[in-house]
């Protein structure tokens, strides 16, 4: 069993992202968290969180997450439309002598309330989702859930990443697919990014987008090649051409597929998978240590 040491006073946050969905973000982040002595698994894929299906956390506590949206006092509104013109998301319309608020379009910036000359607008809480927290053996499991129909899960991700991580714990952040705002929010505070790649051209295209993203955010990163088959691997070719560090390889194996599709955790099933992911985690820790030394 390898020994993991985390620098004193520094909890370590590792984000796992891929660009394309179905590449193996959850497989990698769930198993790395399960391979660590103590970990917090944070599911930031709030539109369809699925890490909890593997961990089946116990003693789940639920915290509702809400945002502020404007509410109008019609007795004070004189129809000046300052708020309507201000809103860059067009969440407000003044129709038939009344202000109409489109709650799902509102981004909760609060500008309309600040600018209303009649002080006719106030804010109210609107629940957009929740955070579920529970425990699965050595892993604390945090799951962000965005309610169907809501436009942005970013407020939930902000709260998820505010959760305290103990000094000896490793936080494993399972990012949403893609490379948009919601992914940027998820990797913002990460100490290291793991990019998961699959050997398809489509996968490589989206991988190149997250590669660009982590460079833009100046994050140290490395790649994990998933679903590896004998022969040519376009993801490996891309990594070589772009001098991307390859941290490890996961084979394309029926056994892995079977265990995973039964919502079981590879690391907890067989010693060979524990070794695979513990080795991968060790490699990531070495990379982080090297980066920290290089940057200090």
């Amino acid at each position: 069993m390898p020994v993991f040491t985390i620098m004193a006073g520094n909890s370590l946050k590792i984000a796992v992202l891929s660009g394309k969905g179905g590449t193996g973000k959850t497989l990698v982040s769930v198993n790395l968290a399960a391979a660590a002595p103590q970990a917090v698994y944070i599911d930031c894929d709030v539109e369809e969180p699925n890490g909890h299906l593997f961990f089946k956390p116990q003693d789940v506590a639920v915290k509702k997450i809400s945002v502020k949206i404007p509410v109008v006092d019609e007795s004070k509104c004189n129809g000046c439309r300052v708020c309507v013109d201000f809103c860059k998301f067009n969440a407000l319309a003044y129709i038939g002598g009344r202000l109409k608020v489109f709650e799902t379009v509102c981004h909760s910036c609060g500008g309309c309330v600040l600018f209303c000359p009649e002080k006719a607008l106030a804010e109210k809480d609107k629940v957009i989702g929740e955070i579920q927290s529970g425990v699965s053996e050595t892993v604390s499991v945090l799951t962000g859930v965005l309610n169907t129909g809501e436009s942005s899960g970013i407020p939930i991700i902000k709260q998820l990443l505010n959760a305290p991580v103990g000094e000896t714990e490793i936080a494993m952040i399972d990012c949403p697919p893609g490379s948009a705002c919601i992914v940027m929010e998820s990797i913002k505070d990460a100490d290291y990014c793991i990019l998961v790649a699959e050997p398809t051209l489509f996968g490589v295209h989206n991988f190149s987008m997250v590669h660009e993203l982590v460079k833009l955010f100046d994050k140290p990163f490395g790649a994990v090649l998933n679903k590896c088959l004998p022969g040519n691997n376009p993801a490996e070719t891309f990594c070589r051409e772009n001098e991307i560090q390859i941290l490890g390889r996961i084979p394309f194996a029926a056994e892995i597929g079977a265990i995973n599709s039964n919502a079981r955790i590879l690391v907890r099933e067989q010693p060979k998978y524990r070794d695979l992911f513990a080795g991968l985690l060790l490699r990531v820790m070495e990379e982080v240590r090297r980066e920290t030394t290089a940057h200090s």
């Binding site: 309507v84 809103c87 860059k88 998301f89 067009n90 319309a93 003044y94 489109f102 379009v105 436009s151």
Partner: peptide, 18 residues
């Protein structure tokens, strides 16, 4: 003018038509 909106273009266009 809603054509370049980041979001809510339908709402803004409808307001102008009204």
């Amino acid at each position: 003018t809603a054509i370049a909106s980041q979001g809510g273009a339908g709402i803004k266009a409808a307001q102008a038509v009204v």
